[in-house]
Structure formats: C-alpha cells, structure tokens
Design a protein around this nucleic acid. Sequence first.
DNA 1: TACCACGCACAAAACGTTTTGGAAAATGGA
DNA 2: TCCATTTTCCAAAACGTTTTGTGCGTGGTA
Lengths: 345, 345
Amino acid sequence: MSKEAPPPAARATIRDVAREAGVSVTTVSHALNGKGTASEETRRKVLAVAERLAYRAHPMARGLRRGRTGVLGLDMRPLDAIGSYIPEGVDYFVRFAGAAAVTALDHGLGLMLVPDLTRSDVSRAALGVDGYVIGDPTRDDPVLTRLLDASVPVVAVGRDPGRPDFTDWVGTDDARETERMLDLLRSRGARRVAFLAGTDDNAWNVDAELAYREWTARHAMPARILRVPEAAGEDGGRDAARRLLTGAGERPDAVHCQTGRHASGVLAEALRLGVAVPDDLLVTAGSDAQQTRIASPAITALDLAPEESGRAAVELLIARLNGEPADGPVVIPARLHVRASTGPA
Amino acid sequence: MSKEAPPPAARATIRDVAREAGVSVTTVSHALNGKGTASEETRRKVLAVAERLAYRAHPMARGLRRGRTGVLGLDMRPLDAIGSYIPEGVDYFVRFAGAAAVTALDHGLGLMLVPDLTRSDVSRAALGVDGYVIGDPTRDDPVLTRLLDASVPVVAVGRDPGRPDFTDWVGTDDARETERMLDLLRSRGARRVAFLAGTDDNAWNVDAELAYREWTARHAMPARILRVPEAAGEDGGRDAARRLLTGAGERPDAVHCQTGRHASGVLAEALRLGVAVPDDLLVTAGSDAQQTRIASPAITALDLAPEESGRAAVELLIARLNGEPADGPVVIPARLHVRASTGPA
DNA sequence: TACCACGCACAAAACGTTTTGGAAAATGGA
DNA sequence: TCCATTTTCCAAAACGTTTTGTGCGTGGTA
C-alpha cells in the first residue's frame, strides 16, 4: 500500500462535514434532516459541504438511532417452493418485485427478499426489517397473524378472507373483474360457462368463485365449478378439461380458469380432443401469464397489473411506517387482454 | 395503553442477558460469538439465558460495530427494464433469486433487490450492502467496473468477456454446453445447423458463438449465424426463421437458439411456413424457459440450473466477504432436457 | 517467598448517527 | 439600559453491539 494513494473508500462521516463547515454535528444532522432551527445561511453552507464530500448518513448508525433499518421485507409464498415445482405466476412475481424494489429505492429504502416466514423461526422474521409486504394471504393467514401479533407493520397483496378488519392491503377487485370477464364471454355467445378455480383459500379464489356463482344465478345459467390445485399447472388444466368435455352432462361452451397455467392446459387438451377454440369453446384466464400469451390461440386474460400493485403496496407500507392514517385497501384496476381464444375481435 | 399489558415487543438486549446471567456484557458477547476466553460453565449459562430470553443481537448495532450490514445486494439487469418489455428468463430470475435469498438467509444474511446500478447514483449503490451479486456482465461491464473501483466485494453470474483476470464468477461452461447440444443435433442427423444468438455482448453469447464456429469447422459444416436482440423475443425468432427458411441458400436442417423465446418464435414460424418440426427441422434452445416447455412440440433446451447458480453465487460472495482465498470461477453443469423438437427419444 | 504465566472476567471505548436539554447571542419592547 | 423573547447553535446522552486493554486470582516454577 503506497502512502501516496488516498485510502480508497474513506467514507465521510458527519463529523467530517461538521468540521469542514465549521459547525457542530448537531447542526449538520438538523440541516440535513430539516429538523432543528437553523438559519438559512447555515443550512445552505452545511448542505454545500455535505454535497462536496458526498456525505451520506451511515445507514446502520442512522438505523440504530432511529430504530429503523430502512429495509422492507417481501414475502411472496412461491419463493421457497421453487425447486419443488415451477410456480404459477413467475412473471407476476418478477414484475411485482421489480416495481416494489424500484419504489422502495425511490424512497431511500431497500427491499429484501424473505423466504416463507412460516418455515423460518420467528427471530429471523424480525431480521432487521421495518415492515413486510406479503403476497396473497390465505384465510386467517398464519404469517399475517404472526406479524400482526408482533405488531410489525405489514401490507398484504390481496385481502385475507378471514380477516375483514384488516384493511392494509393492495389488490384487484376480483369479484368485479371476474364479472367483467364473464360478461365478455356472454357477449361472445357463451351460455354455459364453467369455472376452474385454484384450491388456495385466498381472496382471489374465493371472491372470483362467489362472483361466478352470483353471475350464473343472475343470468339463469348452470354453475359448474372445478377446483384444481395451483401447483398442478397445465396437467391440472388438462385433467379438468377432460372431465368437462368428455364427461356426462351438457358440455360447456366456455371455461374461465383462474390461473394462466390451468387455462393453457384446458386449451391444449380441448384441441387434442378435437374441440375447436374459439369456435366450439371459449377459454379465458383470471390472470395473465406467459402461458396465456404464448398459447395458440392466445388466451384472453386479466392482467392483474403487478407493477402497479408492487408500487402501491410499498407506498402503503411506507405510509404505515410513517404513522400516516389508514387509507383502507388500495384497489388496482386490472386490464383485460382480449385475445384469440374468445373469438375474432 | 393499560399498564397491565406487557410492552408488546420489548426486545431483549445484551444487557438484559448479562444481568440475568450475572455476568458482564463483554462475557455475553464473547460467549455468543465464540470469541473470548470464557469457562465452559459460564458459556453454557449465558447461552441458556440468551435462549430463554430469545435474545438476538440487534442487526443494526452489530452492523455498526462490525462495519458490516449483513445484507447482500442482487442486481439482475432485467429488473428495472420490466415494464418496458417482458424480459426473457423471468423464471430464471425467480428461481435464481429464490435460491440466492434462501442461501443468504441460511447464513444469517439478507438479500436485497437492487435495480440497475448504472442508472442510480453511486451513493445509493453503497446503500448498506456488504457485497453484490450481479447478473450476466457485458464486456467491460460498467457496473462491475464501478463496484470494483469502489472495492466493493462483488460476484458475477457469468464471466465478463473483457475482464479475464476477474475470476469471482459463477456460471455454466457455455462453450462446452453448446457443443454438447450441437453434438446432440448431429447425432439426430443434422448436417446444416444454424445458430441464433442474442446481441448482448456477454460471455454467454460470445462463448456459445465461438463454440459454434469451432464446432462447425471441426465437422466441416457451413456456419450460419444470426443475431437477434434478446428483447425482440418471439417476434425476433419469427423474423429470423423467415430469413433462414425462405431466403436464398441451402435451408438449414436445425437451428440452435440461445434464448428460449427466440427458439419459440422460430418454431412457430417454421410450423406456419409448413416446415415440420422435428421432421424437416430440429430446434433447440440454449436456455430453458417456460416457452421451451410449453411449445408444441416442446423444445429441447439447456437448463442453466439457476437454483445452483444462485446458491453458489451467494456462497462465493460470502467467502469473499470473509476474506477466504479465491477459489476461482465456480462452474455449474447445465442439464440437457431432450424434448420432442429434436425427434423421438 | 517472589515471580510469571495463564485462565477468566470485566470496564470502557468505539462505531456514526439522532435527539434532548440547554446556553449563548440576537432581537424587541419598555 | 434592562428584561423577556426568540433565534441559533451546541455538548452530551443515547441507540446496542463488538473489541481492546486491563485486572484479578491461582497455580507452577525458580
């Protein structure tokens, strides 16, 4: 190490700034955080020096003092299920996480990926995180329970069906969006619409199914509901299609599937069975995914706007952290991508 | 607030443990970290008390003292390109990030998502992160340069083609794996193999292309190379297929595409043009993706083992942070998924 | 007995902030 | 000129660790 070279990453401390500006560290802190009462002149001087020295408060020191880490945790369930199966909605996850991370950073915060909290011990859960964003809570979600019990700020993506009082969530209005999709099917001539839901007991499945029931009743249509595990993917969709199309009873002329993978499986199996899509059968999906875009014909689907959800979730969490008043659930409108699986435009 | 209820989350501090165990904080710290000289008896007593109080060192305090934050940064380029286009390899990303996050947590560290560092200012880059994992560096990668200049520990996924001295990377042996794939094509009868690369100047493209050139020369085959931007996706693949299949010159009997989306586009366009796959044309991909699995026929592809790369990258970075000696690049073997696009098994 | 080495435990300093509680200087009013 | 404010600044105390240096017994050796 040559004595000539400046020590490489000698980070400037608040003391350096204070010395250089000829004021106390208190004043520097105040000037930088807009807290105390300092003359405009002093403030400007401090800002200038801080700028010149490229000073940034050491995140640890600040965190220690403020009792905040400046990091948000993101717990989307699929994360540590990866490896065991290819999860539905990988592109949902990436788009959501990307937007969340960018939004957090825009607020000077980091976004930490946290594997399923139900599996890791509680202590870890507290691992230096100011608050959590958790994805798609199931009814009376255990992770949510744990975090709320520990009074850790938390925002969910989608409501917890068993916890009507918990309003810190962000998501789509699944009932309304489902109706929208069903209306589209009806306008395209469908009169016997089957519904293929997942088995996870979350609001997304629950609300869509309820909407479907009400919608079929309203239109005096038969209700035909199948439930297939999300993890069953395309194969699950294929099985369901076989049951729907070759089984007893009147054949549906449309199938609305919650997941894109199920829809993709239904489509493939229908084609294999010689049922033409969209001529003999309309197929739609409650969530957009690579599968729905790639399928041939491409599948009409609801785009759940993960980018906007990610941004909104982080912003809501930050509002919580700042003790701002509750502004209830944030509803993100979905986009309806009409594609070939529901007939010509 | 009732005085009866215990303060909800009164985290136990090292002082509590010390008091309870009847020793000094120094001794507690030493016992817990296995540092100082303490009698076995004292150590056990401290451990027991710490366990009972569910004590965990406050990450900020520890970080402040140790000069480490306990958080690793993950910078995969696609992240903040999201929104502008649906990136290739979203499932690669999720699987990689998931494995990386789990591995980090197993070591008591967090994994933070960081959008492209080239766009954010430097100061942010230092945002409380001990080291970085960056994905797929391009030649003389600017992010890598910046981090190395700031002597921030960093591990790359894939080597930097312009930086042979930098060996802290993890990834597949793209030359060898490409050869393996080409050999497969040859064994299935292909004699005029075209190669469709991406345009990013990273090792993955560079090494595969070089391997292709050498392989064709070795086997006295004509070399036909097309380059299509990664972001062009399926459409890019379609265009390329049109050029290859309808243009002048002898028609290739196989196409190897680096990205799954390109391969998917090539396949679709070939079928549209009446070129049967695998009968008249074999199609393969250099990276597995949803597209290759879903396509019909499914496309033979290299699975770049993102889970293992993610784990290895984090472990290498941790070794670096602990000042352990360099153990060069870590090569992860790819898996070759042979599917219908290269003929019957 | 005197000295040394060693095992064990501790007090205090340090890490870089923010915040508290004043104190000095400036201002205004009488 | 003097007192009461107000403005402007600061020293010192926290935050919860880890680390450094030191002291105190105890047993062995000269």
